[in-house]
């Protein structure tokens, strides 16, 4: 088969799922505390960690060839550039 690296088993997936549930409860709990401007930042940070878990393990990117990681990096950067350009236009108009 073309799968060069070994795939994770049931246990790994269940552990990742538990971690995702823990992060969900953290983000819900934190939302209840007033942290002012940091609330959004923390929420997005936790969402990013959850995404990394889903992409790497559930979507097998950790076990895929390097080119997949390059693709994801490039599409992420494209999105980031679009956000930065829009906000620089919007803020300094």
């Amino acid at each position: 088969m073309e799968h060069t690296k070994k795939h994770p088993g049931y246990t790994t997936y269940i552990l990742v799922w538990l971690a995702l549930l823990v992060f969900t409860s953290i983000t819900v709990t934190i939302a209840g505390i007033d942290l002012g401007k940091y609330t959004l930042l923390i929420a997005m940070f936790i969402a990013a960690i959850k995404s990394a878990l889903v992409i790497n393990i559930f979507m097998h990117i950790k076990f895929e060839e390097k080119i997949f990681k390059v693709f994801i990096f490039l599409s992420g950067m494209t999105l980031l550039i679009i956000f930065i350009l829009t906000f620089s236009d919007f803020l300094f108009r």
Binding site: A43, I46, A47, S51, V54
Partner: peptide
């Protein structure tokens, strides 16, 4: 994962 905090947790 992103929609949830952006709409429900403000």
């Amino acid at each position: 994962i992103f929609l949830f905090p952006l709409f429900y947790l403000i």
